[in-house]
Design a protein around this nucleic acid. Sequence first.
DNA 1: TTGAATCTGACCTTCTCTGACCAATATTAT
DNA 2: ATAATATTGGTCAGAGAAGGTCAGATTCAA
Lengths: 158, 158
Amino acid sequence: MPNLTDYIEEYIKKMLALSSDQCIEVKRRELAGKFSCVPSQINYVLERRFSPERGYLVESRRGGSGCIKIYRINGEQAKILQELIEDACKNSYDSERLRQLIERMREEKIISRREAAILEVVTGKDIYEALGLNPEQSIELRHRIFKEALHKLIKPGY
Amino acid sequence: MPNLTDYIEEYIKKMLALSSDQCIEVKRRELAGKFSCVPSQINYVLERRFSPERGYLVESRRGGSGCIKIYRINGEQAKILQELIEDACKNSYDSERLRQLIERMREEKIISRREAAILEVVTGKDIYEALGLNPEQSIELRHRIFKEALHKLIKPGY
DNA sequence: TTGAATCTGACCTTCTCTGACCAATATTAT
DNA sequence: ATAATATTGGTCAGAGAAGGTCAGATTCAA
């Protein structure tokens, strides 16, 4: 009944549960070997079942003794991230609201201080007003930028 | 899991930490001997892990009693960024040019991949075109956003 | 039956490591 | 002094070892 992807997912989750720090390291080839499948199957599983949206982070290194690291980001963080994305995608926050969101993301360590700094600058109203955009355009643009940036950041691989 | 390069990097960093003045001197052969590898491996490590972009400076002297000096430097990144910014500020780069600049900064490790992703999104032309801005406004805005974001990043503390 | 999820394989990129050969500098012999 | 030699470090191409990507085949479920 369950398929290969399910088994691999289950296996990884067990490993994570056994790990002390919510973080495991695997070799793609080895793991694939353990399930007698092609290595890229592992990528598929990671993409589908261990995405940021589901509360996981994946990092990897190529080359000799390369590996794949899988982190569980704490449930709170994951929830906040989802909220933020949904929120931000619904509709136009004013610049103060956006600023608060960014601040919160930084506090929750979803983004770094530098990333927050960039986002604050590019979603601040000063830039747009100085250019003679009307308020509607300005809000729309900030909103758009924020959304796009967030989408980029939660993409697998980032 | 760590590989030879990691070990050598770690060793050098420990030495640096122990040094009083953020500067150490090593013999390439000796160091290679300590890790049972070929001498050029040391060059590889220095190139990959102790680049200026990562905040290090390497000097060497050949010949009898030659040696390699490794310094930890501060503020070098800021200098590189300053130059880039000045260039970008003088010449109003188009979106492709900006993209290349961002790419280069990422390659040089001045900004992270995530930071690069944000910058690429916010300076890409797609966002502005969809909003019906005329080309001049669009260019001006991208330019401004890029400048502001970078200025923020090189502020002390970032 | 049809569209989404799963799975495979061919090909690609990145990182590491080695070895042969090159370049520079100090030391020693003449 | 000058030339020869020894001692260092530098460069580069290539092999090998991971992991990544993507299109297409297959399977599954509505």
